[in-house]
Amino acid sequence: MAYQVNGTAIEADEEGYIVNLDEWSKELAAEIAKAENVEMTENHWKVIEFLRNYYDEFQLAPAVRVLVKNAKKKLGADIGNSKTLEAMFPDGAAKQGCKIAGLPKPTGCV
């Protein structure tokens, strides 16, 4: 599959994760969110930015409990709790959040 951003096709795998991580942009994130039926609020963007920073620092898309723990520390308890995060990203805060953030699927093959 592919996303369309400003007339350019951005390739993604069958699950909707982009193939080339360098092609990410905020416009693309908005497109992915639309495809996922996620309405992006200011808090959503904060989580996306957090995820991208986490990946930059550790080369790792965090597992969901690590996301919740760190979001609490970095973004405050209002956002950083599993109930809120799951409501924001119904398909899984780590899974869906990382998809919109243009990161690999979290290695959580439990």
């Binding site: 986490y54 620092e57 550790f58 080369q59 790792l60 965090p62 597992a63 690590v66 723990k69 760190n70």
Partner: peptide, 14 residues
């Protein structure tokens, strides 16, 4: 090749 050495620094989170 992906540099995975920064990932060791995330182990504390885990």
């Amino acid at each position: 090749v992906k540099n995975f050495s920064p990932t060791f620094r995330a182990l504390g989170d885990y």
